[in-house]
Computed example of a mutant assay.
Amino acid sequence: MGNTTMHFEGIYTPVITPFGEDHSIDYDAFAAQVQYLVDAGVQGLMVGGTTGEYYVESHEERVKLLEISKQVAADKAIVIFGTGSVNPDHSIKLAEDGAKHGADVILLATPPYSLPTQRELALHALTIDRAANLPIMLYNYPDRMGVNMEEEFFDRVARSANFQAIKESSGDINRLHMLARDYPHIQTACGMDDQALEFFAWGAKSWVCAGSNFLPKEHLALYQACVLENDFNKARRIMSAMMPLMRVLEQGGKFIQSVKYGVTMDGRYSGEVRRPLRGLNKDDKRAMNQVVKTLKTTIASILAEDSAEQ
């Protein structure tokens, strides 16, 4: 397939992995979640992102989740397959199997914990690229990986046309400026929820957002306002309504649990989290309920008002 240019546009959901009481994967619940997202109209699915708890899943589990996603999504959404692992050999194997099982794109992260130099990181990335030969979305998340992908890295991987996008999750707005100005050929995807408006203002066209697991309509509304309608006044109001949710999700290391609880609130099975994480307590749940309710009402009224004016 190599060298197909992908246009990353829209909402890409890093899909949760529902675990049963015994912490095994509930594949039916996963398929139902994928179906829900496809029906809601998200443009892409990310399997094996941080939100999917990839770091506590076996190789076989990760590949099976990819197969189910491809089956359910058919051609209605693109599927991005995460290859992240502490051990680069495992990432190479994931990249190979990703290509074998129909991934449209691979997600390529920094190996966490080892703190590679930019040159080492580039060699790692080029090796994984050779294993899959698919379009690549890079994943820059220094808070979890310990290292940033920097200019030297981008310059070194430029020899392969497969490096087409980057999910930027550093939270550093200066990196967004650098990517937009110095690397316009790499499509920037927002990976830091509370900066979505800024990313769109700087020309990003896609947003990888965990909250779209249970609020796809509202996340799509922001993308539509920014990218399709170029209406940043409306977008600012939508974003403003979303900010309390971002705060709840980002505070205190309960990101994945909160997203899973959001799916539960929405009436689908999201199950347990795997260790070392533990589920939310009553107060967390109450806060989440309140925030989501207000967000939905507020955004619905912004959208209703907007269509009344047209």
Rank of each mutant, 00 (worst) to 15 (best):
Q251G: 09
V291R: 14
Q33A: 03
I16Q: 01
V259L: 15
A241S: 07
R268S: 11
N133D: 11
A40I: 01
G211H: 04
R286E: 08
K282Q: 12
S212N: 06
C190V: 02
V263A: 12
I106P: 00
I128F: 12
P216N: 08
T5W: 08
V292K: 01
A99Y: 03
Y269A: 04
N281L: 06
F255Y: 13
K93S: 07
S58W: 04
E96S: 04
P276L: 15
V263H: 11
S170T: 14
G191Q: 03
N213R: 13
L228S: 14
M242A: 05
L134Y: 15
M243C: 06
E61H: 05
G82M: 05
S301Q: 11
A189Q: 13
I11R: 00
L66Y: 04
I136W: 04
M137S: 13
V63D: 01
L228A: 14
F81L: 00
F8I: 06
S206G: 05
I299S: 01
V72N: 00
W207F: 10
L66H: 04
G52P: 01
D193A: 08
L107A: 07
V208G: 03
E151I: 01
N213M: 09
M1E: 12
C190T: 02
Q43P: 04
L121M: 06
E151Q: 09
P88M: 06
S301W: 11
A304G: 10
A225N: 09
E218W: 00
Y141W: 09
E250G: 15
A40L: 08
I92V: 11
A161E: 15
N233K: 10
V273K: 00
S270W: 09
D28E: 10
T17C: 11
S114F: 07
D28R: 15
Y12N: 01
D283S: 11
P14T: 08
R278N: 13
V105Q: 10
A221S: 12
V79F: 09
F232D: 05
N162V: 03
H23V: 06
T117M: 09
R130M: 12
A103K: 13
I106D: 07
I11P: 00
I173K: 14
I80D: 13
E120I: 10
I238N: 04
E152F: 03
G253R: 08
R119A: 10
K76V: 04
V208S: 06
Q224F: 01
L134N: 15
G41R: 07
S114C: 10
R286S: 06
H219W: 12
L280M: 05
I92D: 09
A125R: 05
A196T: 11
E229Q: 15
R159A: 06
L220R: 09
